[in-house]
């Protein structure tokens, strides 16, 4: 009897009838309403209960096949999705660009069509070119989840960041969030800008001018503040999110040296003390400890970086649940 009960979804999971949309794809956070984000939060809250059970499995996606199609290396996103899907009883196929016909020059559209023909219901895709998930979503009848596309978007990372912030602060509304570093190349920053502002946060971007994208003031964007001085940006911050600084940026001429970047933009204990006393430190990973963040801060009392990874599974379970019944 006990086993049977454990196989059911927790009662706290909102019913599918309560879904705020008939969503088919998750491509970016720009089209998520506040209600939809709240629905994901509530579902994730309930999914956490499943993760605490002895048998971490419910039958919601039994008989469904999820394919992870990764053209770029990834540890946490791919494994997190695999875990989330398995917890929901989906079958999971992992495909990476090496070891498939992608290496023989098969086009992206053909690859997606092949996966569809093989019975995929959901494709989670990471690609180094912006827009690649949109391309396949146009050509297949499968649900597509963007697991990160070029410098464009990483919606599931954005949602788990939001979820982590909400868990600690109680609400995102009114929170002051500082995102530091390579905004120009960061899909995480872009998705967070959409999600955070939609939930009522104030977003401050802090970076040297060479790492800030152009046109942020255009009417099509949410309102954000750009503050090049880290000390000033951190004053009164509730949440601080340093981004990974890829070492290639120095070669690309965007920065003189990593040494100088560290001097002006590294999040260390002194700078952390400029924010609110209990300010949260998030990082989308993978970290370059000693560059954008010191090990003391990364593993300090205010860091919720490891927690982000754990929360990621519950949030992705919630997102997969959100897609149930979304495709015809």
């Amino acid at each position: 009897m006990r086993t049977t009960k454990q196989q059911e979804l927790p009662e706290a999971v909102p019913s599918l009838e309560a879904k705020p949309s008939r969503r088919r794809h998750i491509l970016d956070l720009d089209d998520f309403t506040r209600d939809e984000i709240e629905f994901v939060f509530e579902t994730a809250d309930a999914m956490k209960e499943v993760l605490e059970r002895e048998i971490k499995k419910v039958p919601t996606l039994r008989g469904k096949t999820l394919v992870t199609l990764f053209y770029e290396p990834s540890t946490r996103t791919r494994v997190s999705f695999e875990q989330a899907a398995k917890n929901l009883s989906a079958d999971v196929i992992n495909l990476s660009a090496s070891g498939s016909s992608v290496e023989k020059g098969e086009s992206l559209i053909d690859t997606a069509r092949t996966l569809q023909a093989l019975g995929a219901d959901i494709i989670v895709m990471r690609h180094y070119h912006a827009g690649a998930p949109y391309l396949i979503a146009q050509h297949v009848a499968v649900s597509v989840i963007n697991g990160g596309d070029g410098c464009h978007a990483h919606p599931t990372q954005g949602l788990l960041d939001l979820y982590t912030i909400r868990e600690h602060l109680g609400t995102i509304d009114g929170a002051k969030v500082v995102i530091i570093g390579d905004i120009l190349h960061s899909r995480v920053a872009r998705s967070n800008i959409w999600g955070l502002t939609r939930m009522g946060a104030e977003v401050i971007l802090c970076a040297p001018p060479t790492l800030v994208p152009v046109g942020l003031g255009a009417p099509a964007f949410p309102v954000v503040t750009v503050e090049p001085s880290l000390d000033r940006a951190l004053k009164g911050a509730d949440v601080i999110m340093p981004l990974r600084l890829q070492k290639e940026r120095q070669k690309g001429g965007l920065l003189p040296t990593l040494r100088e970047y560290i001097q002006f933009y590294q999040l260390d204990s002194r700078r952390l003390s400029l924010a609110k006393p209990d300010a949260l430190v998030l990082h989308p990973g993978p970290m370059n400890e000693g560059i954008e963040i010191t090990p003391e801060v990364a593993h300090g009392a205010q860091s919720v970086i490891e927690e982000q990874v754990t929360k990621g599974v519950a949030v992705r379970m919630a997102l997969l649940y959100l897609l149930v019944g979304g495709a015809e």
Binding site: G131, G150, R190, G215, L216, A218
Partner: peptide
């Protein structure tokens, strides 16, 4: 073109 649309789409301008 480098501008708000390239930023919006994450494409190099």
């Amino acid at each position: 073109n480098e501008g708000w649309v390239s930023t919006r789409l994450g494409l190099k301008g």
